[in-house]
Structure formats: C-alpha cells, structure tokens
C-alpha cells in the first residue's frame, strides 16, 4: 500500500493579476521505503504541491484534490491541530536554505530538543540523549560541543545536517527534501546526498526529493516524476528515464545538460518543445 497518495491536486493563488494556477491536477504516490524525485524548473509547481501536503501555504492559496492520503488517513480535510500531530512527527521536511530554516536566537541543541518535546513524551535527560544520538547519526563531530552552538557558528553543510537531524528526530515515515543541496558547494552536496541516501536505507523511510538538478536525481532516486508548468509530464523509474525519456520536455532537459553536449551548441528546450516558450525566455 502506498504511504502517501495524492489524487488530482489543484492549487490556485490569488494575486493582483487575478487567479494564478500553480498546480493543475497532479497525482502521485510514494511507497514505503522508496525515493521519489520530483523534477522541474522554477514555476513548475514542484515545491508548492508538497507545501500543500504539509499545510504550509498562505491563505491566498486554494487547494482542491480528490484526496490526499497519508498512511491510509485522509489529511486533506484534517483540522489544523490534527494535522500538526502528523507533520513533524510522521512527515519531516528540510528546505533549501539551511541557515534560514534554523532560528538564529537558539542553540541547535535546544531546537532539536524542542521538536522532541512537542512530539514525544521523553523526559529531559532522554531528550538530550536522543539529540546526541541524532547528531552522531547525521555525522556531526564533537557532538556535545556542537549541540550548544548557534546556527551562525556553523557552516551551511553543517546546518543542513542539523536540519536533517531535526527532521529525523521522531523517526518519520516520510522525509520531504525541498532542494536540500542547491545552496551548497558540490563537495558538500555529495556528502549530504550520501547521508540522505544512507539514512533512507538504514531507517527504511520513504523520501520525496524535490530538485531541478538532473545530477541529484541520478544520484538518489528510485522513481522520478517530471513536472512542467503545474502538470506532470512524465513518470517512470530512474533508469528508464535516463535511458529512454518519453516526453519531449524530459528529453530536452537531459540534452541540455552540458556534459551531454555533442556539438558546438547545447540543444535548448525550444529545439524540442514549445516554440513560444523560448521567445519569452522560458519559465518565469
């Protein structure tokens, strides 16, 4: 049985220029222990659809769907307080900007223990032990020292490790990672991706990885969903996607990778798909 099932999700935002449709009828499912990558460029609606699942969208957004089911429960019509019981406990989330996702006023240790206090009934000492354990898990050296440091005293890569530790604090069944390595250097990116993949295998949780980077997809995913302008254009397992992409947009994305360049020029998306998109410079 699928862990997370979304059927026909639509999202509209109210703006000055009227209604803006960000997501248009997206369905997807993630099985237990599976890594699903959602790929798309900016404006493809990949992040907002996951924020909708988490209930983190501003009030200007209107969400409709046939159903959003997590672990057999419908979370679309859940009250905010019931939703909060699931989010942060059974679903963890990490974001693109690790520095901005941590509260600069508190030590990282305090912030992890706070998460534990909200979702578990561990006592103080047990919470501390769990925090130390989590820091070891995500590979932060000098655990005890590091627990009492503030976010600004850590590097971007270490902050992302802290975010991962925080997301994993309650042994979630699903981890949603929204562009987790985009703000990081390549060498750090490799470490973080390896960490995520290893943790996923170790804990058996499911993972949704939102990214625009085909390289990240190739290094992590089991299955891939490609989104374009709020619609899903292709879904398949990672190997067949890279071996024989079916949709012209996917083909265009893959051939736009500079490492796949054959001649003097890079084929751009317009060579494959949608002439008028190229004239306006692609997705806004």
């Amino acid at each position: 049985m699928a862990l997370l099932e979304i059927k026909n999700l639509c999202l509209t935002f109210d703006t000055v220029g009227g209604k803006l449709k960000a997501v248009d009828g997206i369905s997807l499912h993630v099985d237990r222990g599976e890594v699903l990558a959602i790929v798309g460029e900016s404006g493809s609606g990949k992040s907002v659809s996951m924020l909708a699942v988490m209930g983190l969208l501003p009030w200007t957004a209107t969400i409709t769907a046939d159903y959003i089911r997590f672990d057999g429960k419908d979370i679309l019509n859940l009250s905010p307080s019931d939703r909060r019981k699931i989010i942060g406990k059974d679903i963890g989330m990490i974001f693109q900007e690790p520095m901005a996702s941590l509260n600069p006023c508190f030590t990282v240790g305090f912030q992890i223990e706070e998460t534990l206090r909200q979702h578990t009934d561990l006592d103080r000492a047990a919470r501390r032990r769990r925090a130390v354990e989590l820091f070891r898990m995500v590979g932060i050296p000098n655990t005890e020292d590091r627990l009492s440091s503030y976010p600004h005293q850590m590097s971007g890569g270490q902050c992302q490790r802290v975010m991962i530790a925080m997301a994993l604090a309650c042994n979630p069944k699903l981890l949603i990672a929204d562009e987790p390595t985009t703000a990081l250097d390549v060498t750090i990116q490799k470490q973080i991706l390896e960490l995520l993949v290893n943790l996923q295998i170790e804990t058996g949780m499911a993972m949704i990885l939102i990214t625009h980077d085909m390289g990240v997809v190739a290094e992590t995913a089991d299955r891939v969903a490609v989104q374009y302008k709020g619609r899903r254009v292709e879904e398949s397992d990672v190997l067949s996607l890279f071996e024989s992409p079916k949709h012209p947009y996917t083909r265009a994305l893959l051939s736009a990778l500079p490492e796949n360049a054959t001649g003097d020029r890079l084929p751009s998306v317009s060579d494959y798909f949608l002439e008028e998109e190229a004239v306006t410079g692609g997705a806004a």
């Binding site: 390549v186 060498t187 990116q189 490799k190 991706l193 993949v197 295998i201 980077d213 085909m214 390289g215 990240v216 190739a218 290094e219 089991d222 990672v238 190997l239 890279f242 071996e243 893959l254 990778l257 490492e259 796949n260």
Partner: peptide
C-alpha cells in the same frame, strides 16, 4: 575531490548505484 563530487548522470553509474542499494 571536486571531480568525484560532481553527480554522474550516465546510465551505467545509475545502474551501479541501484545495484549497490
């Protein structure tokens, strides 16, 4: 190190990764 850290997108490395998993 820098070269080793760059993600690989060729089919062989994906296949190898899946096998390892």
């Amino acid at each position: 190190t820098l070269f080793a850290a760059t993600p690989r997108t060729d089919v062989e490395s994906i296949r190898a990764r899946l096998a390892r998993k």
